[in-house]
Design a protein around this nucleic acid. Structure first.
Lengths: 230, 230
DNA sequence: GCGCTATGTTACGTTTTTATGACAATTAAG
DNA sequence: CTTAATTGTCATAAAAACGTAACATAGCGC
């Protein structure tokens, strides 16, 4: 799976889980821990593409840990977004001084979080990877706006692309037509539920050419599910 | 499938959007607004199944609005979860006094939020489902809407699914046909008792493919029992 | 075993839900 | 401006799920 990975280091459980959920929901792969010590272990396991770091941490403070990372030639390149409580604006300067790539005050909206993460990743040139979602032997490439199945590349229309994108980032779970409309078309638009059927049909037609139509599964009375296993 | 709807009334954008996102992600239908005035309009449009309400609001305070709702016979039944900043624990008492159904301090984890909402909805009788029910080596997953036996995944029809759901949550106990109709089909529908037999038969047929038909047991003169032990 | 009742099984008509093809409107491309 | 592609909607076909009746079979008291 080539989703971009984000490591969340935040001691407060509630906020950490909230962050992780938003990240997962937005297509990132989130790992999390409550302090710098564990964070170091995780870093040895796997290098994240970005770190979201709380300013205040028990033990080694966030800022101190960030400083160390930025001195370590091995970890220096990982972008860091600092988190801080509101009203400590003066810290912003210090944070950016030591090399943090951005700075966010709690509380923040999911949109803001994702926007900032994207911005940082773009700035540091990692965003290209984000363009790729992999599931099984299928690759959905947002940059090329292309779907690859096995070694075949095929083009899909914008709506089918978004639908595919949603499905590939949320596999194995049933979604009602309403939920799909909300998530893929966006809330606020009023569209007939039957329309989902039609687009499902169009997606299946495409997948059928590669013998994958059974990946889009009908769950009678509930909606649709996308799954590798039939 | 009509999802349960939750109205979020919270003036701080960041938190409101966060709430909405978590709710949507968890399968609820979320509507949102920043103050009590707009909330009233939304209420007239559609009655939500639950309200998540910030304690402090511009204009009419959350607590005041909640009090009014709880006096209004039309809205009284809507459960309310109050939100407050940490460190205002003493408000909890006041909140619950005026009829709020639960109380949450910011910040909170998505898990906690969803758990509390589910708990309240369960308590007030609007929900009874659990994402995953396990019995022996069988897993009934509402999220995927799938039944797993051993390592085989199989789809069952809506009615068989609900029947299975009921049985798996109430194993080893006999239920009469009437009880099953009440519980699985719903109290208000009139359906022949024999129909239960037929669906039992269909369920057995499915289970038989995996050598489990003896799990659905006939108790002559009383009804049926679902049990791992035969 | 006999007769009676409860339960199992099957087939069938009905209802509900989903799939599909066609069309018009809109948008994007050339 | 023309042409092609995309998209949403509708009408209709097809499929799945349901409930019911009819008949078969099995259990139970006598």
């Amino acid at each position: 799976m080539s989703r971009l990975s984000v490591l969340v280091v935040e001691d407060e459980d509630a906020i950490r889980e909230m962050l992780a959920m938003v990240l997962e929901q937005s297509g990132f792969e989130a790992s999390q821990c409550a302090d710098a010590e564990v964070a170091n272990l995780i870093l040895q396991e796997r290098m994240p593409d970005l770190i979201v770091l709380d300013w205040m941490l028990p033990g080694i403070s966030g800022i101190e840990w960030a400083r160390r990372l930025k001195k370590d030639q091995f970890y220096r390149e990982i972008p860091i977004i600092l988190l801080t409580a509101r009203g400590e604006e003066e810290d912003k300067v210090r944070g950016l001084e030591i090399g943090a790539d951005d700075y966010m005050t709690k509380p923040f909206s999911p949109k803001e979080l994702v926007a900032r993460i994207r911005a940082v990743l773009r700035r540091t040139g990692k965003i290209e990877d984000l363009a790729q979602i992999t599931l099984g032997d299928m690759i959905l490439d947002s940059e090329q706006h292309r779907l690859t199945i096995g070694d075949k590349q095929l083009d899909v229309s914008p709506t089918e692309f978004r639908l595919m994108q949603f499905f590939m980032t949320h596999p194995d779970k049933v979604y009602s037509r309403t939920q799909l409309l909300d998530q893929v078309w966006g809330r606020s638009v009023y569209i007939e539920e039957r329309t989902v059927d039609v687009h499902i049909r169009r997606l299946r037609k495409i997948l059928a050419e590669y013998g994958r139509e059974e990946m889009v599964q009908t769950v009678r009375g509930f909606g649709y599910r996308f799954s590798l296993i039939s």
